[in-house]
Design a protein around this nucleic acid. Structure first.
Length: 423
RNA sequence: GAGGAUGUAGCUCAAUUGGCAGAGCGUCGCCCUGUGGAGGCGAAUGUUGCGGGAUCGUUCCCCGUCAUCCUCCCCA
């Protein structure tokens, strides 16, 4: 055991069963994206570290990325997020793209963090963005995409909620409290941490940051005011659009949602599982209006969100919302009666495949009992046998494993009878 | 980066104060020489994560190390 080479820490191995889960998520992601007319795209998996240095936040670049030098001595990074690549690719074709651009992507990302529940070092992430429009209705569309996804995996509004806030609204509230510009970032982090800290500790931390008592109390008033959105025209329009889109039951205003990334400028949102063991965000995103300027493009606003596959996978599993992944590689098995009839089975299999059927053919002669047991374990629905009697009369024995019935038919009738059984 | 828990058969777990390493499930074979699911009988699989130490003797005690899980940090 010890001499065996283990998988790299924080990576997951996808046996067929896990692969089915990954593909299930991918399929639902594609469904929600396409329902709103988004196009699939992707970026390189390895990028220059400089791409992330500009905007992604120090923590992400310095501590959480997989970085190494290639054979020529250049620094390269396994991508920890997609947005900088998106910004570059958009900027490169900024004048030829047709706006609004609606793109989505589902691919691998890497972050060098200590693995724990809901977090691995290698994960898959859904990214979806709309660029070139800055209306609240565009924000609403992205939230509706998220809600459509949640609905499609049978996470009802009682099980998962999307919490929404707006950074511009918070900025104007901070103005009222006379919180100085240079403290805004710290205060944002403070707000972000409120749910994770004990109230007394949180107060102490706030004062430590240099807030006075009046500012602290004012901040608490803001964070407890769930009608605050009415003061924001953007949010009023957003909620009206969400209602018209039929997803309002998934969405709640929450002034405590801030999000860590620096580049958000307007509406921000985060979806949480409301009842499970995992207190992690399922997905999160928001509006960013200055992103392209940093990679040399003209100003272009966008809105988007990201969702990792790990958290959503655990939630769906815990709630029993996954379909049963039957590991049936094909619905039909062709047995091999004995050495002399091997070729009969091979040619029958080939014939059926060219008729469009997926066929599993036993790869060596073996006792029929063994082959039927194999068929049963593989959840095959139909077993075909060509024994000496069938071969002599150009026939095939067709057994339906669901009800146990077996008939012997002419070889040219096999396709039809199989289609009837597996339909 | 800091802290905690756990490593025994393919899986889930036992093993009395330190005294021959076990069970259930699964796997395979046979009962059953042209047919799966049920049943009966039987078999295989272990450097007890790895390395050292103390001991007549260790799965058990001590030290180190690696891995996994959890918490903090941070984030998706």
């Amino acid at each position: 055991m010890a001499s065996k080479i283990q998988s790299v820490k924080g990576t997951r191995e996808f046996y067929p069963e896990q692969m089915a889960l990954r593909n299930f998520i991918y399929e639902k992601v594609r469904g929600a994206s396409q329902a709103f007319g988004y196009q699939e795209w992707d970026a390189p998996f390895i990028e220059s570290i400089d791409l992330y240095a500009a905007k992604s936040g120090e923590e992400l670049v310095k501590k959480q990325s997989f970085t190494f030098t290639d054979r020529s001595g250049d620094f390269v990074t396994l991508r920890p997020e997609l947005t900088p690549s998106l910004a570059r690719m958009i900027a490169a074709k900024q004048n030829e793209l047709i706006y609004p651009v609606r793109w989505w992507s589902f691919g691998p990302f890497w972050r060098y963090e200590s693995p724990q529940k809901g977090r691995s070092r290698e994960f898959f992430q859904w990214n979806i963005d709309m660029l070139g429009v800055s209306s609240p209705e565009a924000d609403a569309e992205l939230i509706a995409v998220a809600a459509t996804f949640l609905r499609s995996v049978r996470l009802s509004p009682e099980l998962a909620t999307i919490y929404v806030n707006n950074r511009r609204l918070m900025e104007s509230e901070f103005d009222v409290l006379s919180i100085p510009q240079e403290k805004r970032l710290d205060v944002s982090n403070l707000v972000d941490r409120r749910s994770k800290m004990e109230p007394a500790k949180w107060d102490a931390y706030a004062l430590e940051l240099g807030l006075n008592d009046a500012q602290l109390n004012g901040l608490k008033d803001i964070l407890g005011n769930f009608d605050l959105w009415k003061k924001s025209d953007e949010l009023v329009r957003l909620f009206a659009a969400l209602e018209a889109l039929g997803v309002k039951d998934y969405v709640k205003f929450d002034p405590n949602i801030m999000r860590g990334l620096l580049y958000y400028t307007g509406t921000v949102f985060e979806a949480f599982d409301t009842s499970g063991s995992l207190k992690r965000a399922i997905l999160g995103g928001g509006r960013y209006d200055n992103l392209l300027a940093d990679v040399g493009g003209q100003p272009l606003s966008g809105v988007g969100f990201a969702m990792g596959d790990v958290v959503i996978g655990i939630i769906l599993q815990e709630k029993g919302l996954l379909p049963e992944f039957i590991p049936s590689p094909a619905p039909i098995l062709v047995t091999v009666f004995d050495e002399s009839l091997m070729k009969e089975s091979l040619s029958l299999s080939a014939e059926l495949r060219s008729a469009g059927l997926n066929i599993l053919c036993f790869p060596e002669p073996a006792k029929l009992q063994k082959q039927f047991k194999f068929a049963d374990k593989m959840k095959v629905r139909v077993v075909l046998t060509v024994g000496p009697d069938e071969a002599a009369n150009a026939q095939v024995a067709v057994k339906n494993l669901i009800n146990g019935e077996q008939v012997t038919v002419k070889r040219e009738a096999v396709v039809d009878i199989i289609r009837k059984i597996i339909k």
